[in-house]
């Protein structure tokens, strides 16, 4: 824990001397409020509470602890990316937010409510949707049925929202009656997002949306995520394709061994020598 704090502090210091962009400046001024924690310090957006916030979150599977005091937040409308090496616990952050791991300490606040110990089927009512990395569609159900399942908690299928998703991903409407398992990888990813968007969530969590996609589809996928964000949905995304993800997002975290190592705007992280060398392959 103390290592992480040191590392982050060090980064902040370097960034602050850089002081090229507004965020860093804000960080520096915020830092003046001496007693604030690393997580608290990053409250750039001003007085408004963030949409999602993890405070000193410890979590894992069974007896195995993966996350070690993770402080993260996502502001309303923000597009945040988590990058980091394999096994750093990137996906675990999302699973923990969504109540799919063993909670070991700290808390998760979403939209003002403490959702730390809630189950996924309760959390989804709060306006938080999650697209897992693998097996994120119901392959034996049709495309339309997949979307209907996305709105299961509602009394009836919201037709206007379904319309909006079909407009965003026209291929899904074309394949409406087809079994989802027969779609291509890219189409399945769109369906997975469509399913998660059926409840018009405030925050959409995407776990490696570009994984397994053909290179020419990756850009398209990122464009669509931009569009979803532009339409007002906050995004929290984990990505292997770190450079592109950081280029696209508002802000990023570099997670290493279950701890925040760096946190800054995407561009600043891309410019950071240490981040580039250690995590972005130069």
């Amino acid at each position: 824990m103390s290592d992480a704090t040191d590392a982050t502090d060090a980064t902040d210091a370097t960034d602050a001397t850089d002081a090229t962009d507004a965020t860093d400046a804000a960080d520096a001024t915020d830092g003046a409020a001496a007693d604030r924690t690393v997580g608290g310090e990053t409250a750039v957006a001003g007085d408004d509470a963030p949409l999602l916030e993890t405070r000193d979150l410890d979590a894992g599977y069974g007896d195995l602890q993966i996350l070690d005091g993770v402080d993260m937040y996502v502001d309303d409308g923000e597009y945040v990316t988590i990058v980091g090496p394999n096994g750093a616990g990137k996906s675990t952050v999302m699973k923990s937010v969504f109540g799919l791991t063993v909670h070991m300490g700290g808390e998760v606040i979403f939209d003002g409510a403490d959702i730390t110990d809630r189950k996924p089927e309760q959390i989804i009512h709060e306006g938080l949707s999650y697209v897992p990395q693998n097996e994120n569609i119901f392959g034996t159900l049709t495309v339309e049925e997949n979307l209907e399942m996305g709105a299961y908690i509602l009394d009836e299928v919201p037709q206007d929202q379904m319309r909006a998703i079909y407009d965003r991903f026209p291929i899904l409407e074309e394949r409406e009656t087809q079994k989802a398992g027969t779609l291509s990888g890219g189409q399945q990813q769109m369906l997975a997002m469509g399913r998660a968007l059926m409840l018009d969530p405030k925050l959409l969590m995407l776990d490696e949306p570009s994984a397994g996609l053909a290179p020419d589809l990756v850009d398209d996928m990122f464009d669509r995520i931009d569009e979803i964000n532009d339409a007002g949905t906050s995004i929290l995304m984990v990505e292997q394709n770190a450079k592109e993800a950081l280029r696209r997002c508002d802000r990023g975290y570099v997670l290493v061994q279950g701890q925040n190592r760096f946190e800054n705007t995407g561009d600043a992280l891309l410019d950071n020598e240490e981040v580039r060398r250690e995590f972005l392959g130069g």
């Binding site: 799919l100 996924p120 392959g139 399942m149 299961y152 409840l199």
Partner: peptide
């Protein structure tokens, strides 16, 4: 029926069913 579709969804993928908000 929605219930039947939810049953098929859960048979297909329990974890995703939970994440989707289907009351397992």
């Amino acid at each position: 029926t929605t219930l039947g579709k939810a049953m098929r969804a859960m048979a297909d993928n329990k974890d995703l069913a939970r994440v989707t908000g289907i009351p397992t």
